[in-house]
Nucleic acid binder design. Structure first.
Lengths: 115, 115
DNA sequence: CAATCGTACAACTGTGCGTTTGTGTTAGAG
DNA sequence: CTCTAACACAAACGCACAGTTGTACGATTG
């Protein structure tokens, strides 16, 4: 396992592009829901479709995007395709953002109560 | 300091919306650049404009979005307005994503070499 | 007070992305 | 072999947002 050197500053242009792209992949509620559901357990397209109440084409498309981004893994099982999280780092990201959001909400609440 | 309870699953709809929105704010190269520059030190709109080679209106607009998201802080200093990072958690996010991207690039490289 | 600099705001245009609709492909059942 | 179900791929529509231009506001300077 090789250790990565620290992130350079300023960030080189192509890296910025990649980072922004990765954030953009997570900037869609449907994809957050898919990942959140997959966090519980692996699932087929049909199961995800039922769980989220979305059309098959829509689910499949977003799963394709998540797959292109290397966040989920595809496995054929009989007639179905099973999806699973392939990069656990996504969880930390989401948790971190969730924490940040809730911290902000708390601050807002505090302001509303004290002001 | 109150401790936040662990994140519930499945994520409630409004929280998902907020999380996605937050990711979307970071899904724009210009805003990543602004944050990356502000990481070095606080700066005025003019300074940021010069450092990034963008128009003043554009810089101001993106700073406004970052400010609405609570990621940067505004401070008046004489004739100018100084912007600064207000949520250091953004750094961890970016670093984490940077790490993830570079890890992926390394894997790709390894595949290309061994395949 | 007038002039200038820095900044924010509003209207407009173009484009990228999400959604929908339709079709192709593969695996299993009869 | 035919039929059906599950999934992926492709094209069209519509919306939301990034970028540009023009303008208005506030502060500093002379």
């Amino acid at each position: 396992m090789n250790v990565l050197p620290p992130v350079p500053h300023p960030l080189p242009e192509p890296l910025i592009e990649l980072v922004a792209q990765r954030f953009r992949v997570l900037g869609e509620p449907m994809r957050i829901k898919l990942l959140d559901r997959l966090r519980e357990s692996d699932a087929t397209v049909g199961e995800l479709q039922g769980a989220l109440g979305a059309s098959q084409q829509n689910v499949s498309k977003h799963l394709g995007i998540l797959h292109s981004a290397g966040m989920v893994r595809r496995t054929k099982r009989g007639n179905s395709v099973v999806y699973a999280i392939s990069d656990p780092g996504v969880f930390e990201l989401c948790d971190q953002v969730c924490g940040g959001v809730r911290r902000q909400l708390q601050e807002l609440e505090a302001i509303l109560q004290n002001g």
